[in-house]
Simulated scan of single mutants.
Amino acid sequence: DSSTLDSEIPAWLSNFYQEKNIEMALPERPALSFADQLQVLYDNPVPVASFTFGIISAEQVQHLQSLGTRVIGTANHPLEAKAWAEIGADAVCVQGVEAGGHRGGWLPQSANDPMGLLTLISQTRACTDIPLIAAGGIMTGQAIKAIQTAGAELAQIGTAFLTTDKCGINATYKQALLDASQDNRSSETRLTRLFSGKQARGLLNDYLRDFAQFENAHELPPYPQLNAMTKDLRAHAKKTLDAEHQSLWAGQGVALVRQEGTIELLERLVKEL
């Protein structure tokens, strides 16, 4: 529930704040109201709206489409893609287990048995013909060709762009990604709930190592509550240039990142096609 902050702060997290002498100020609400955010899209129509962390209603999809907005859902499991197709979405982003950052699905199956991208595309293709946008570990033109051969129309690429000149992530985060491309040891990623309460993939760092035993703790506050609780910790790490306590979101293709211009990366991907 995003309206109230009613989970207890885990003892390990509160101890960490005290040990590091970091001020923690919890907001009254852990997240913005979804209804209010959706209203902004109704009042200011955009060409495309994409949704993640759950599914909206058929009525909401129709309302957006009546305003000229195309609707894209996110799925980590074929059943989630099918659910988006059934309520009339225009396309679905299928996000494989390789993808960096937060997983967009909501069914227990997608967390219990995360699927690799090619498996996810082929199994989704078998149950719906909605256009698919593929995400997860795509770093090269060859990978774009592979997902198109498997049945996706488009590729969505995140991690490859993070180390390019137009990307606004902080320098410490960018350097950690570049270090991962130099050294196989530091290119290890993890799916974790420890930063936000929802599964997300990032580079393995001290925070994830030190608190690994709480990863599957049933008392871990859910998203977005834990996200609100770790906000000051992440901000402090960013301010003190500490990569070990930031959420360094990255996909499994992170070893292939390069320090290059954003345009250079785009040109290279097109050339490799």
Results as ranks from 00 to 15, higher is better:
S66N: 14
Q213F: 05
E98D: 07
N205W: 05
L204R: 11
L38S: 09
S196D: 05
T119F: 02
D129G: 12
L265N: 00
K20T: 03
D206S: 11
P27Y: 08
S186H: 11
V71S: 08
I169W: 05
L273Y: 06
D242P: 09
V257S: 00
P30Q: 04
Y223E: 03
W12G: 04
G88Q: 11
L5Y: 04
A255I: 11
I87W: 07
Q259A: 12
T189K: 02
K231H: 10
S196Y: 05
Q213K: 10
I157G: 01
T230D: 06
A111N: 10
F161N: 00
Q62C: 10
R190I: 09
L269Y: 00
E28I: 10
W106A: 10
A89G: 02
P27V: 06
G116K: 11
S122P: 00
F195V: 14
G158I: 00
T192G: 04
A111E: 14
Q246W: 05
G251H: 01
A11Y: 13
D90W: 10
I138E: 00
Q123I: 05
S247C: 11
D179I: 07
T149Q: 12
E8S: 13
W12N: 10
P108W: 13
T262F: 03
G251P: 03
L67R: 15
D43E: 12
R193T: 13
S33L: 08
T189Y: 04
L220M: 06
L120C: 07
F195Q: 09
C93M: 15
L162V: 13
P222M: 01
A180R: 01
A91F: 12
I9R: 07
K239Q: 12
P78D: 13
L132A: 09
Q18G: 14
P45A: 08
R193V: 02
P108M: 12
I22S: 03
L178H: 05
G141C: 09
V40L: 13
V97F: 10
A180P: 06
